[in-house]
Computed example of a mutant assay.
Amino acid sequence: MEDENPRTAEDAAENPRGDRVLDAGALRALAHPLRVKIYDILSQYGPQTASSLAERLGESSGSTSYHLRALAKQDLIHEVDGRGSGRERWWERPRGGVSFANAEAIKTPSGRAATQIVMGEFFKLRQEQLMHFIDRGLAEEEEEWQEGSMISTATARLTPEQSAELSRNIMALIDDAVDKYRTQTGENVRPVTIRADLFPLPELEDQGALS
C-alpha cells in the first residue's frame, strides 16, 4: 500500500496533518468515473503504467494514457522517478492525505457537481469492494484473513461536538496504522482498505422522503 486513501469525511478547516484539499480544478479533473478508478488503483495498489491500468480496467492503453495525463496536469499523480522508459511510463499518487471536502468549491454549482461526482464514484467503488468481500471473501479467504477483517455498524446519539471528537479519535487510529505500515512489504502483506463512516441520520419524520 503506497499511501492512505483519499479522505472524504474530514472538515477541511481542521487539517492538522496538512492533507491536500482538492481545489475546484482538481475536482473537475477527477470528476470522471474512469479517472476515479485510476486514482483509486494508484492509491491502493501503488505505481502502475497505462498498460497495466488498461488491463485491469478493460480499457485501451490510449484511453488510460489520456486520463493519466489529465490527472497529472492537476498534480493528482506524477511519474515515478527513475522507473520506466519513454514507452513505458510509471505513474504514482503523491504521498500524503487528500480531502475532497473543499468548502469553497461546493459554493459554486460546478464545484458542487464535481464534488458529488467524485465522492459518488469513490464510494461506489468502496461499496463494490465491500460486496465482493461479502459475496466471496467471507468464504474464500484464508481463515487468518477472515479473522483479521471487520464489518461493523453501530448507532449512537451524539452532539456535533461529540461526533467531531469521535471522528478525530477514529482518524488518529487509522493515521497511526497508515504511518506505521505504509511501505511494508513481505510475505502475506496485502493492501487493506480501511473505511470509517460517521454522519448524522435524518430525523425520523424525514425518512419518508428517502424511501
Rank of each mutant, 00 (worst) to 15 (best):
L198P: 02
K73W: 09
R17D: 12
D19K: 07
R95T: 10
S85F: 07
A13C: 09
L166C: 09
T185V: 11
K73L: 10
Q162K: 09
D206K: 14
A12S: 13
G62D: 13
A154F: 12
G25Q: 01
Q162W: 11
E121W: 02
E128V: 11
A101N: 15
E187K: 12
R69P: 03
T64L: 05
E55W: 04
H32L: 08
L158D: 08
V98L: 08
E14N: 08
T155A: 14
R126G: 11
Y181A: 11
P191Q: 04
S85I: 11
A209R: 15
D40Y: 12
L34W: 06
D81F: 11
L22H: 06
T193L: 10
P202Y: 06
L42I: 03
S163W: 07
A24H: 12
G58D: 09
S110Y: 10
R112I: 08
L210D: 05
I41Y: 05
S167D: 10
V80K: 01
S61K: 13
E92L: 09
I106L: 04
G18V: 04
G86V: 10
T49G: 00
E205H: 11
M119L: 10
T193H: 07
H67W: 04
Y39Q: 05
L68N: 02
Y39G: 00
V178D: 05
G86A: 07
